[in-house]
Design a protein around this nucleic acid. Structure first.
Lengths: 342, 342
DNA sequence: TTGAAAGCGCTAACAA
DNA sequence: TTGTTAGCGCTTTCAA
């Protein structure tokens, strides 16, 4: 039985008055415009005035009202849009973003966007007067992204890189990811190498392309086999069922979580990993190292990606006009899930 | 080698003008106050005026400026503060919160707070003129929470419930969680049941208490054994090492991620799970069901918790004065990691 | 170097 | 029912 308790409040519910720039000005004995100048590090304030104002700010515990600031100038808030909260790789990216804004005046807040509400969420962030946006694995169309980039400084992470855009991008070299995996598996002696990819058109298309090209380079064109699924347990299950029909020796999964599901699925079907089915994931998330998974995975350093994104945004704020596209190189981390020989 | 490309932008960088309430008013041929009234569903607007204004809003693609709104009235933005992004249980809570705000005008944005910056983050959210806050597993002290609650409507999730506070709470019955686990393990025949808990004082203290009380009730007081660790791989490792010295038959971990680490650690030490060491987690996150984990875990329905929190906040916005404390009942989901017999 | 004043886009009291 | 008006707390000219 659930329990609910109601209590009279210890204090009233009325919004307490904020300390404003005026009270700081009064306390310091200067005009409120002077306080604003100190706040913004504006040109033309004497050292003594600055000190007096800063003393009052500290004394009164003043913090600037972001909404009021944003209404006239910058809000110093940036929005980060994630596609979901479940993938621990996103936490790596977030850590990088945080680190990137560390020594800047910018505060990052996050939003989680389902495919259907990403437009609304980004608009809401613009309406909040945020100064810039970082979009991770956005599901917006190239046209929508271009439009967004023309309305607010933006950085897209994990989108197919486009030239001549209105926004910056930071990407893993996904073509290379696909190649690394096939090279490794082929060297282990596998020929029937299948790939589990994403239905939704994203950077995964590049990973598929790398997989295809390397399969061809290895003379394994006949065994190219890709299943695209939704990112749901049911979808993944269906995709695996389909791939297993062709008795693959190895499986490349577009992300670690899917690879873990695949390990689970394979084991439930009586298949040994890696003897009967080698499995490789992508992102090298924390769970890969666990003994029960020991998953070979492609590391794309989410932290580095995030730090780049934050830096790019700050550069735009500080005046950079031309867009910048960054492409980072992945590396393979080999573990037991794909080690066929002792 | 990483690649960087620079391009001239397709469009300029200047902020495009927003559509404001004035342009809507001009387009509809009414005063801008009339538009504001339509927006706020305020009393005293004729049907025809409302229709005309709504038509102009749609036509011009107007969306209200949140910052300007917040400066006078409500911003319709609520902030959700999470302790980290790695724990998939938080995603369940978030899903519940989202669902809870679905049919309301409120937009939720998230912040991730390390222990050291939670105060700054909550202050920043207040500075953004957010209407309310939801704090998940907050590391703020009771005094800080009480103070926060007196400054802005707030709901705390996963804090030790206090009476006579300034904020609402939603909690799992953690005492009950501890009891359920010990009952289950004792029934399986285990006596030396150890617990891996958190260093930082949180709701975990209640879980420890339930563990203790049930151990006593089962006549196993002599075997009570709790290790409190940091939430880092190193910390968890150290805690396990310490607990294993006393050769426990079963281990109750304060969250699933720690339980997965424990499974990994046990296996690397040559221990079989559950034969040599039964393991139970908490939160019943998605990975528990995977064959390679098959982890028994306590389900505390994060989604329900989140939905309650959102509802409580909306109620406060709509005038509720007294605080409310909700306590939900957990249930145990048994899997192979703790099934000692057949 | 400092301060006065206008105004960002909106809400809400008040007047018409 | 509608419109007028005074701010919310700040940034940013411009004048002193």
């Amino acid at each position: 039985m659930n329990k609910i308790e109601r209590n009279r409040p210890g204090q009233t519910n009325g919004k307490p008055k904020r300390v404003t720039i005026l009270q700081v000005a009064a306390d310091a004995g200067v005009s409120f415009a002077a306080v604003s100048k100190v706040l913004r590090n504006a040109y033309g304030v004497s050292e003594s005035l600055r000190e007096r104002v800063n003393a009052s700010i500290k004394k009164l515990g003043y913090t600037p009202n972001t909404a009021a600031r944003g209404l006239r100038g910058r809000s110093f808030v940036v929005g980060v849009v994630f596609p979901d909260m479940r993938n621990p790789f996103l936490a790596d990216i977030f850590a990088g973003i945080s680190a990137g804004f560390e020594r800047t005046p910018y505060q990052a807040v996050q939003g989680i966007a389902s495919q259907s509400n990403e437009r609304d969420l980004t608009q809401a962030m613009i309406d909040m007067q945020m100064d810039g946006l970082i979009l991770v694995s956005s599901s917006l169309s190239p046209e929508q992204l271009t439009d967004l980039g023309s309305r607010i400084p933006a950085v897209a992470i994990g989108n197919r890189p486009l030239v001549e855009t209105t926004f910056d991008t930071v990407n893993n070299n996904d073509e290379q990811s696909g190649r690394l995996v096939v090279q490794h598996l082929a060297k282990q002696g596998a020929e029937r190498i299948a790939m589990l990819s994403l239905e939704h058109p994203t950077a995964m298309r590049m990973r598929e392309s790398g997989y295809r090209h390397e399969m061809e380079a290895q003379g394994l064109s006949a065994y190219i086999n890709i299943a695209r699924t939704e990112q749901t347990p049911r979808g993944i299950y269906g995709g695996m069922e389909k791939l297993l029909e062709s008795r693959p020796q190895a499986l490349f999964c577009w992300c670690d979580a899917v690879a873990f599901e695949s390990i689970s699925h394979a084991r439930s079907n009586g298949l040994r990993v890696p003897e009967d089915l080698a499995i490789v994931g992508h992102d090298n998330t924390v769970y890969c190292a666990l003994d029960q998974n020991s998953l070979t995975s492609v590391d794309q350093s989410g932290e580095q990606i995030g730090t780049h994104a934050a830096r790019l945004l700050v550069e735009r704020f500080e005046g950079r006009i031309e867009t910048e596209q960054i492409l980072l190189q992945p590396r393979l981390v080999v573990r037991r899930s794909s080690t066929l020989d002792g």
